[in-house]
Simulated scan of single mutants.
Amino acid sequence: MSAQLTAQFLPLTHRWNLYAPGVMVSFMIAASAYYISSRLGGPVMLYALLFGMALNFLSDSDRCQPGIRLSSKTILRLGVALLGLQITWLDVAALGLSTIELVIAAVTLTIIGGVFLGRLLKLDKSYSVLSAGAVAICGASAALAISSVLPVDKEDSEKLESQTLLVVVGVTALSTIAMVLYPVLINAIGLDDKTAGVFLGATIHDVAQVIGAGYMISDETGQVAAVVKLLRVACLVPVVMIIGLIFRSELDARRGSKRPPVIPFFLFGFLAFVGLASIEVLPESMAIFLSDVSRWFLIAAVAALGMKTSLKKLFTIGYAPVLALALQTCLLAVFVLAVLI
C-alpha cells in the first residue's frame, strides 16, 4: 500500500479506535436490555438505563469515554431522525381535524402548565421544560431530543445529564403504570373503542405502552391509539425548535455556554423521513429495517446516558422533580379526558 493511501486511512482508523469501545459497550447494553425485556417483560428503556448505571465507572475510562459521549449525542440524534419513518401525512389526516386540534392543544397545555408547576415547585426552568416536553410528546425520546438543544456550560452539563436521566426513568415508569391503569379507567367510564384509542394515544408517554394498552381493549383501539401517538411524535419538531429558540435567546447573559443551532440537523432528518414514508418511496423492508435501527440507536443512547450518570447523584435531586412529572402526567390525562367526555 502506498504511503499516500496509508495516510488517507489513518484518520479513519484513529476515529475507529477512539470511538469503538464506548459505542460497542452501549450497544452491548442495549442488546442485553432487549433480551431481558423480551424474556421477562418490562420497558426495554428502563433496563438499558439500569444496566448503564451499573457500569457508570466506564464513563471515567479514557478508552470508553469518547464512544459513550458519541452514543449519547450523535447516535441519539440519528435515532430521533429515523423516528420520522413511522409517520405519514395520510395517517395524520385520517384522524380528523378535531383529533388533531385536541392533540396540539394537549401538548401545548401540558408544556405551559408543566413549566408553571415547575415554578411552583421551585425547579430549574430547564428541568421543567424537559419533563413537560417528555410528558407532552413521546416520553424518553422527547426528553433526549429536548436535552440536546438546551444550552449547556461546563458547570451545568453534568446536572442536565442527571435531570435527563431522571425524566427518562420517570416517564418510563409512569407509562408502564398508565398502561395498566388507563384501560381499567376506560372500562369504568364506558368509552367506545375509537374514543378510547384517542385517549390512550394522547396521554400515555411511550409508544410501546400506548400500543400495549390499546390492544388490551380491542384491535380498533390499538390502531387508533398508535396513530394518535405518532401525531404527538410529529409535534417533536416544532416543540424542539421553539424550545431551542427560547433558550438560545437567553444565552447572551451566560458566558461559557455552548450555543446550540437554531434548527438542529436531526429535525431536518426527521422531516425528510416523514416525507419519504408519506410518498412510500422506500421499499417496505427498508422502512422496517430503518425503524428497527432507530429503536436500537435510541436504546443504545439511553444506555450511554445511564453510564454517564451515577445513581448516588441521581438520588440527591430530591422529590420535587418526581412530583412534577406525576402532576404533569395527571394534567395531560385530565385535560384529554375532559374534552372527550
Rank of each mutant, 00 (worst) to 15 (best):
S2F: 10
A3F: 12
F9V: 06
P11F: 04
P11K: 03
L12V: 14
L12H: 15
T13I: 07
T13H: 07
R15I: 03
R15H: 13
L18Q: 15
G22T: 04
V23G: 06
F27Q: 02
M28Y: 00
A30K: 06
I36K: 02
S37V: 01
S38Q: 15
R39G: 07
R39Q: 14
L40V: 11
P43W: 01
F51V: 12
N56E: 07
G67R: 09
I68C: 09
L70E: 09
L70C: 04
S71P: 01
S72R: 13
T74P: 00
I87A: 05
I87D: 02
I87T: 05
T88Q: 04
T88D: 05
W89S: 10
W89G: 14
D91K: 01
S98G: 05
T99A: 13
A105K: 13
A106P: 05
T110A: 02
G114L: 06
G114N: 10
V115L: 06
L117S: 03
G118F: 05
G118V: 09
L120C: 13
L123S: 14
S128G: 14
V129C: 12
V129M: 13
G133N: 14
A134Q: 06
V135M: 11
S141I: 08
A142C: 11
A143D: 05
L144T: 04
V149I: 09
L150Q: 08
P151D: 08
D156R: 15
D156E: 14
E158W: 07
K159A: 11
L160P: 05
T164G: 07
T172A: 15
T172G: 15
A173F: 15
A173P: 00
T176W: 00
I177H: 05
M179V: 01
L181T: 14
L181P: 04
L181M: 14
V184D: 05
N187D: 11
D193Q: 10
K194N: 11
K194L: 08
T195L: 09
T195Y: 06
A196Q: 07
V198R: 03
G201N: 11
I204R: 09
V207N: 10
Q209S: 14
Y215R: 13
I217W: 12
T221V: 08
V224S: 00
V224T: 13
V233S: 13
P238R: 08
F247I: 00
S249D: 11
S249Q: 15
L251D: 06
A253L: 08
S257A: 15
K258Q: 10
I263A: 03
F265M: 05
A272R: 02
A272E: 00
I279A: 03
V281T: 14
P283R: 12
L290I: 07
S294G: 02
L298A: 01
L298Y: 00
A303C: 03
L305M: 13
M307F: 00
M307K: 01
T309P: 03
K313S: 14
F315Q: 11
T316R: 14
G318D: 00
Y319L: 15
A320M: 14
P321C: 02
L323K: 01
L327T: 05
V336R: 12
A338P: 00
L340A: 01
